[in-house]
Amino acid sequence: MHLLDPDHPFFQPLWRRLLLVAIPFVWAFVEMSYGNDIWAYFSAGIGGFLAWNLILKWPNKD
């Protein structure tokens, strides 16, 4: 079972993948600034998961 399908056409543009990775990290910063550490870690974890799957492990189709 996959939580995220990086082969889906929605994820093809680079700007969309970068935006989807940046949003949880921005939200983690917002939560951290309000003192909600648990939600900040949770959001950063989601951002890390997306960064791993959409940026670092992106399928190279040459």
Rank of each mutant, 00 (worst) to 15 (best):
P6Q: 03
P13A: 13
R16L: 14
G35S: 07
G48E: 04
A44W: 08
A28V: 08
L56R: 07
L56F: 15
L18R: 07
A44D: 02
D5C: 13
F11L: 03
F49G: 14
G35Q: 05
D5A: 05
P6T: 00
S33R: 02
A51M: 14
F11H: 00
F25E: 11
S33E: 04
I38H: 10
H8G: 01
P24K: 04
L20I: 03
A22D: 00
K57E: 03
A40M: 07
P9W: 01
F42A: 04
A28Y: 03
M32H: 06
P9C: 13
S33D: 02
N36L: 15
P24R: 07
L54W: 01
L14T: 06
V21I: 04
L50M: 14
S43H: 10
Y34R: 14
F11Q: 01
P59C: 10
Y41I: 00
F10Y: 15
F42P: 02
G48P: 04
L3V: 05
M1G: 04
M1R: 13
P6R: 00
G47M: 10
V21T: 01
L20R: 07
E31G: 11
G35T: 08
D5E: 14
D62Q: 12
A28E: 04
W15D: 10
F11A: 00
Q12L: 06
Y41G: 00
N53T: 11
S43E: 10
D62H: 14
P24H: 08
P9A: 09
F29S: 09
A40G: 06
P9G: 08
K57G: 02
A51H: 12
